[in-house]
């Protein structure tokens, strides 16, 4: 059975199904239930946007509110994972990674290799990413390139409710640490989502639109901008293929290269800042492996090299637009 579900509800359902299926799955984070220790209602919040609302009622002590001590509880989730649990730790805004990064990149990411392959750390660290919420410089970043840079971390960023559920279940069942990036401006987006549990393997890009004359590679919210651009370009008889990376580490460069070999043109879109971005990575790889197929220089459409501005007037300029993406393709086709 499939229903039209929001990405927010799809994420809630994924966690619920896995907690029901596997008692070693636990959920922790700040206000993920909410109301702990007070005299009002318990499960008062379900996270600041209500994503985990209702899970405490079903799974009680396996849904744990935490003090505002990310180093400690993210680290504890990682430690518990190394000891046979499957914790899902919510970092609310992934910008807060700053205060607990050591536990993630020096500990979780390195155990497996550093210990000669003998450790497994099946932890999921999930949280919000992305701009467009007028949430300003410290609550709006797309830090995916930072996470992707680190060997040992898997990095996921879904663009829709269907993928979010399948990729999150895969993340929970996966035996490596996963950084699961949820774009806050996609929580309300709806898709057909089966009620059953299902998984989407990592390292498999999706192709939400097929085309012959140019390839736009994107992930997260930018997939929607890319599709919008493709729609506009179709009216101009430019037939664009859109590749949704979904998983940034591992990354499905095969699909990107296959597409570029067909179209000869590549625009890589990234909501992250330009330097050392996913877009830069995709372009470098595609240029190296599909150089002969290229009919025009690849173009990266990214945020500018600035922090995320607060003012709506600036933030709207900051986020790559469908118009900028379409222009890039036009330039290549000309």
């Amino acid at each position: 059975m499939a229903r039209n579900l929001s990405m927010k509800d799809a994420i809630n359902e994924a966690i619920d199904l896995e907690m029901t299926r596997d008692p070693s799955v636990i959920l922790m984070g700040e206000d993920i239930a909410g109301g702990s220790g007070g005299q009002g209602e318990m499960d008062a919040w379900g996270g600041p946007l209500g994503v985990t609302k209702g899970l405490w009622g079903k799974h009680k002590e396996r849904v744990m509110d935490t003090p505002l001590s990310e180093s400690a509880f993210i680290g504890a989730a990682i430690g518990a994972a190394a000891c046979g649990m499957r914790p899902i730790a919510e970092l609310m805004f992934l910008d807060f990674m700053g205060v607990c990064f050591d536990q993630i990149f020096n500990q979780a990411a390195k155990f497996k290799y550093m210990f000669g392959g003998k450790a497994e750390t099946p932890v999921v660290i999930r949280g919000m990413v992305g701009a467009g919420f007028r949430a300003a410089a410290q609550h709006s970043q797309m830090l995916t390139p930072l996470f992707t840079h680190i060997p040992g971390l898997k990095v996921i960023c879904p663009s829709n409710a269907y993928d979010a559920k399948g990729l999150l279940i895969q993340s929970i069942r996966d035996n490596d640490p996963v950084i699961f990036c949820e774009h806050k401006n996609l929580y309300a987006s709806m898709a057909d989502v089966p009620a059953e549990a299902y998984t989407i393997p990592f390292g498999e890009a999706a192709i939400p639109r097929e085309g012959k004359s140019a390839t736009i590679v994107a992930y997260g919210l930018m997939v929607h901008r890319a599709l919008e651009a493709a729609e506009t370009l179709a009216k101009e008889k430019i037939d664009v293929e859109v590749v949704d990376l979904r998983s940034l580490s591992p990354i499905d460069m095969d699909t990107v290269i296959e597409s570029v070999e067909k179209t000869g043109r590549l625009v890589a879109v990234d909501e992250a800042n330009p330097r050392c971005s996913i877009a830069a990575d995709v372009i470098a790889s595609a240029t190296e492996h599909a150089f002969k197929a290229l009919k025009a220089a690849p173009i990266a459409i990214t945020a500018p090299h600035t922090p995320v501005p607060f003012s709506a007037a600036l933030e709207d300029l900051y986020i790559p637009s469908a118009a900028r993406i379409a222009d890039a393709v036009r330039k290549q086709v000309k």
């Binding site: 089966p194 059953e196 549990a197 299902y198 998984t199 192709i207």
Partner: peptide, 16 residues
Amino acid sequence: GRQMIDDILKYKRLDG
């Protein structure tokens, strides 16, 4: 086509 393949994978990936 791509969509046929994707639909079948979507089905095959359901638990069970």
